[in-house]
């Protein structure tokens, strides 16, 4: 399959590969898998607890080139966004940016799932009083 230039770029130079300690204050971890192919992806955010802004993001993906590119792109997009803004990132945004073909859509879904899971984990771990806001997503 021919990958788009952007996929190849992220695949060859993935941004923000790595991980944070799970219990560092402000860190939210999302670990998700794609049942279509059995690939797994871990995505983490580090949120400034005062401002609610995502200061850093990291990922580790054991999957196809599109999944690696999707998660790499996602971490780039996440940095500097507020938690609420981050919740609005859609897999279709990723598909458009990376020009993913239909058979690779589930790879971008994986990235969206990972973002959502990381945000949810961040909220349950670090937002005690904001339980109502967290459950509305």
């Amino acid at each position: 399959m021919a990958y788009s230039e952007k996929v190849v770029d992220h695949y060859n130079n993935p941004r923000n590969v790595g991980s944070f300690m799970k219990d560092t204050p402000g860190v939210g971890t999302g670990l998700v898998g794609a049942p279509e192919c059995g690939d797994v992806m871990k995505l983490q955010i580090k949120v400034n607890l005062q401002t609610g802004v995502i200061e850093d993001a990291k990922f580790k993906t054991f999957g196809c080139g599109s999944a690696i590119a999707s998660s790499s792109l996602a971490t780039e997009w996440l940095k500097g966004k507020t938690v609420d803004e981050a919740g609005k990132i859609k897999n279709t945004d990723i598909v458009n940016e990376l020009k993913l073909p239909p058979v690779k859509i589930h790879c971008s879904v994986l990235a969206e799932d990972a973002i959502k899971a990381a945000l949810a984990d961040y909220k349950t771990k670090w937002i005690k009083e904001g339980a109502a806001a967290a459950s509305s997503t």
Partner: peptide
């Protein structure tokens, strides 16, 4: 998932 990730 956790286990698969660790093995990978």
């Amino acid at each position: 998932l956790e286990e698969m990730f660790e093995i990978q």
